[in-house]
Structure formats: C-alpha cells, structure tokens
Amino acid sequence: MNALHFQERWEFYQFIAGYRHLYSIERMCRVLKVSRSSYCWWFSHRPSKRAVEYSLFTDLIKKEFDASYATYGSTHITEQLKRKHYKILRRRV
C-alpha cells in the first residue's frame, strides 16, 4: 500500500498496527516518516470521544446516503438524522 493514500496520522498508525506481525514497527515508522513514540502512544491509548463520535456519524451518514441511492445531499441527510434523534450539524455531514 502506498503511503500517499493516507490522509490522517491515525491512518498511518492503523496501517502499522495491522502489519506489525509482518514487519518491525521501527522500520515501518521510519519508512512512513512517523515517530515511533507517537505510534506507541496512539497504540496504548483508547480513542477519544471525538474519534468515536466521528466514526459513528461517518457510518450513519454513509448508510443514509446509500439508502437514498446516492441522491441526498448534506442538508437532506442532516434532516434525516435529526428525525432519528441524532444531534448533528450540517457542517459535519
């Protein structure tokens, strides 16, 4: 997998965690240009409240978008989620 496909720092860390049984953590950190201490800190801590919410809302947004046959925009998806009693702003969608 090419490192250029990663958008966020945590995606590098997930990649390292997924392949640590095949390659050394030290080598992957060097190749991906992330510090080993940052990876170890990420690996030893649980996800933040924001990260958990982000993951939940991302899944919900994708489900609403797919249910609309890819026709709903952010405004309509926000309305649908609010009808289901989720507190979400359109900017997040």
Rank of each mutant, 00 (worst) to 15 (best):
E8K: 08
S55D: 06
T78V: 00
F65Y: 01
Q7C: 14
A17Q: 15
L32C: 06
L22H: 01
S37K: 01
H21P: 04
H21E: 13
F57M: 07
A51D: 14
T71K: 05
A70G: 02
Y13D: 04
W42N: 09
R83C: 05
P47C: 15
W41C: 06
Q7N: 14
Q80F: 00
V31Q: 11
A70I: 10
T58A: 08
L56I: 15
Y13Q: 01
E53R: 11
L56R: 14
R90D: 04
P47G: 08
Y39H: 11
G73K: 02
D59T: 13
F43W: 00
H5V: 10
S37V: 04
A3N: 14
R20S: 15
P47M: 05
V52K: 06
D66R: 10
K84R: 04
T78Y: 00
F15P: 04
Y19I: 14
L60W: 04
Y54G: 14
H5T: 09
A17E: 15
A51P: 10
R90Q: 07
E64D: 07
S55L: 06
R92F: 11
I88N: 03
Q14I: 11
I77A: 02
M28I: 12
K49V: 13
R83G: 04
E26S: 15
A51M: 10
K63R: 15
I61P: 05
I16N: 09
S24P: 03
L60I: 06
E53V: 12
S37C: 03
E26C: 13
F43S: 00
I25P: 00
Y39P: 06
G18V: 12
D59S: 11
A51L: 05
P47K: 05
V52S: 07
R20F: 15
K82W: 02
R9Q: 08
P47V: 05
D66W: 03
R92D: 13
W42A: 08
Y23C: 07
V31C: 10
E8S: 09
I61Y: 02
R50V: 15
K84F: 00
A70Y: 08
Y39D: 07
V34K: 05
S24K: 06
E79G: 02
R91Y: 09
